[in-house]
Amino acid sequence: MPFVSAIVRTDDGTWVRSNVVNCDATPEAVKLGMRVRLAIYPIGTDDDGTEAVAFGYEPA
């Protein structure tokens, strides 16, 4: 399953490693320098039904 790994620089200068989500995982859809915003997304459910979430970034 393709995913988009990115290094995000926030407006206050903090650097974050995360995924870019809610967009196609293609070089055409993802451009270096594009603006993104925080997006929480589910990454799986365990055998007890507990859902795990991760933070990602989506195109702004």
């Binding site: 995913f3 790994s5 990115a6 290094i7 995360s18 995924n19 990454i43 991760a54 933070f55 990602g56």
Partner: peptide, 15 residues
């Protein structure tokens, strides 16, 4: 709660 590679970016060598 789980391995995060592929969810919070990647540390794999190709990546």
């Amino acid at each position: 709660v789980t391995g995060v590679d592929g969810y919070l970016g990647t540390e794999t060598m190709p990546g």
